[in-house]
Amino acid sequence: MYYIVESDKPFEQASADLEVAVQAGGFGVLHVHDLGNTLRSKGFPFTEACRVFEVCNPGQASKVLGLDLRLNMALPCRISVYTDQGRTRIGLIPPSDLLEGLSKDPALLPIAREVETALIQMVDAAR
């Protein structure tokens, strides 16, 4: 249910490299949530770093929404860069797993797999 890779890069470098890989893969970064800083700013003792990148390919999103508008709640795709016990990791929930659980429309699976392949290539490039 998860695709996670470990990186030898520092957190900041892996984050920057992911942003470059997303753009090179034909997607855009819509927003980056810095969960680590947000939690710490609210007084929670969160010791790890964690950024969630919301990424989107408008053409693919349009296809998905054209088949099942309810899936707007599962978009955009998210890729996380985070640390776990000092190790940098990059991961995502594969779109095919996510969409299969949310819709039974068989036309969605090829789209989800295509997006998934692209996202995994981005994660691997940022690794």
Rank of each mutant, 00 (worst) to 15 (best):
G43F: 14
I90Y: 04
T88A: 09
A21G: 08
P110K: 09
T83M: 12
M1P: 06
E54R: 06
N57K: 13
G36Y: 11
A14D: 06
D68S: 10
R78Y: 08
V81E: 03
T88I: 11
F27K: 00
P94E: 04
A107P: 00
R127W: 07
R89L: 15
K104E: 05
I111C: 05
E19D: 07
P58C: 12
V81F: 01
D124T: 12
V20A: 15
S15A: 15
A118F: 09
D8T: 14
Q60C: 03
R127D: 09
D17A: 14
G66L: 04
T47A: 15
Y82E: 06
T38C: 06
E19P: 00
C50I: 12
T88S: 12
D34F: 11
L108M: 02
Q85W: 03
F27E: 01
L119Q: 10
F44S: 07
I120G: 00
R51C: 04
L108N: 00
R70M: 08
R89C: 14
P106K: 05
I79S: 00
S7W: 07
L71E: 10
Y2I: 02
Q121I: 03
E114V: 01
F27W: 11
S15K: 07
V22A: 03
G101C: 09
L39G: 05
E116M: 09
L67W: 05
A21R: 03
C77T: 06
R87K: 14
G101M: 07
P106A: 07
A126K: 05
P110E: 08
Q60V: 13
G25K: 10
K104T: 07
L99W: 09
A125W: 00
L39C: 05
L18Q: 03
Q23I: 13
V5G: 06
